[in-house]
Structure formats: C-alpha cells, structure tokens
Amino acid sequence: MTLSLFLVQTLNGLQFGILLFFIAAGLTLVFGVMDFINLAHGVQYMIGAYLAAMFTALTGNFFFGLMLALPSALLFGLLLEFLIFRHLYARDHLDQVLATFGIIIFLNQAVKVVWGAAPLSVPVPEILSGTVVLMDGLLYPVYRLALIGSGLAIALILYILVSYTRIGMLVRAGATNAPMVSALGVDISRLFMVVFGFGAMLAGFAGAMVAPILSVEPGMGDNLLILTFVVIVIGGIGSIRGAFIAALLVGLVDTLGRIFGPFLLRLIMDPSAASQTGRALAPMLIYILMAAVLFFRPAGLFPVRK
C-alpha cells in the first residue's frame, strides 16, 4: 500500500468518472427536459466505439476516425429520435422503457452482425502512447491523462453552454418546468432534438475515446448504462452539475473501493475474510452509496424540479 498506488487509482477513478459523466450528461438532460427515460443511451456509447474503431481502421488514423465517428454518432442518434423516440414522448415511462429496451436488444445483436461477435481493438494513437512519470515511481499512460484532460475541458464547455447561452437557459428552464417553456412559445420538440442529438454525440464521444483502452464489444454499453442511472439518480435528474459531481463520486468510490476496500476491512477482520468480503462488497458500494443518498434525499443531491 503506497501513495503512488493510491494516486494511480485516484486517477483511474477520475477517468472512469469522466467517462460516466459523458454518458450521464446527455441522459440527465433528456430526462430532465422531456421526462423521457431512454435505456438506449448506453448503446449510443457502444455505437460510438464501433464507429471509431471502423473509421480508425479505414483511415489508419485515430483522430480522423474520431472526427468521422462524432458526426456519424450524432446522425445515428437523430435518426433514432426521428424514427422512434419522438413517438414516445407523450407515452408513459413504462412504454418508453419497453421500446428502448427493444432498441437495445436489436442494436446489441446488430453490431454482432455488422462487425462480428469478437471484440475489436483500436490502437492507442502514436502521439498519445507511452507513459509519463508523474512523480517518483508513478508512471501513468499518456492516453488516460489525455482522456481526463479532455473530459474536464468538455465538462467546462458544457457548463458554460448550459449556464450562459440562450439554449442552455432554455434547457435549464425546460428541466424545471417544461410546460412553462412551451407556453412561452419555444418549440420544445426542436429543443429536445438539439438536446438529444447533443447527448447522443457525447455518449458516442465517450465510446470513441475509450475504444483504444477498452475492448469494443457487443453489450459494452449495458452495464455502463446502469452505472449512469446511478449517477443521475444521485446527482438529481436534470442537473448537469449533479451529474458531474455524482459521476466523479461514483467513479472514485467504485475504483478505490475495489482496491482499498479489502485493505480497510483488514483492520477489523482477518486477511482472508477481509479480501473475500471486500471483493463481495466492492461492486455493491456504489449501489449502497445511491441507496444512502436517496434515503436522505429522495430527489438526489441537486434536485432540479421542486
């Protein structure tokens, strides 16, 4: 147990949290503005990863791949919105859950048909490969640092967009009181398309960015989707700030919990029992965290609607 291990794991947790934030940001706005529960948001992430893999292979360059993957992911999201989602806004949550569940089933299978069942891998781009020495005995991959950096930058941009632009103001107002916004003459369905497309692109971006460090495979969005739900619920539906803080919290708790849980438990148990309990408890930690948050604050940390 060293300081450098702790730091490395903290960075990993941050990076995971930022990944979650990318996906949660779009999802929480879509929930907030349209009261629309979109289970298919996780497959957007998967599609982003596949698109990046495909375009990188085609162009031979990760950045070109990324450049092509982003608009494609956006288009794909808008297509889904146009074909299916917009017919579901007026429906109840149950219908939305069911239809988007159908989309997940379809797309998870479709990527298998198109790209094969075997995981794809994307090489880390040349300039971002290798590691840097952060301090004595602490090596960290450049690519992961870049990921964290770009994540923080995008979070900042998003924050500025939502806080200071007209559309951001509408989005915030829509999350608080959608009928009011549409009563003011704003075309709420266009607003939603923008929000939706943006969210789809962010999720796709997340998928594209992790393609070089995770394996790209069918169903890769499913478990992440649920973690994203946890993030949104903890943060408060419709709140970007809540999503950001909760994403980092979940990322850190999950990552650090897996590593340090057993160590901490050793203080009160014998080592073998501690490692066993630790391994059992670690994946449950964030759910326990969520339960605790909701127990005290049923609408999350930063409730938007009152």
């Binding site: 929930f31 009261d35 529960i37 949550h93 859950v97 478990n223 649920i226 739900f229 946890v230 949104i232 619920v233 539906i237 994946p283 449950m284 759910y287 326990i288 969520m290 339960a291 909701l294 127990f295 049923p298 609408a299 999350g300």
Partner: peptide, 18 residues
C-alpha cells in the same frame, strides 16, 4: 418506494444490479 416515477425505475434497476 420513497421515490417516484423515473427514480423508482432506476433505483430498482440498481438494486437488481447490486
């Protein structure tokens, strides 16, 4: 059950994952 609507869906989902 202290939560409503979407929160309920998501929290039951999360407990299932747990």
């Amino acid at each position: 059950l202290r939560t409503k609507g979407v929160y309920f869906i998501m929290i039951t989902l999360a407990f299932g994952q747990m």
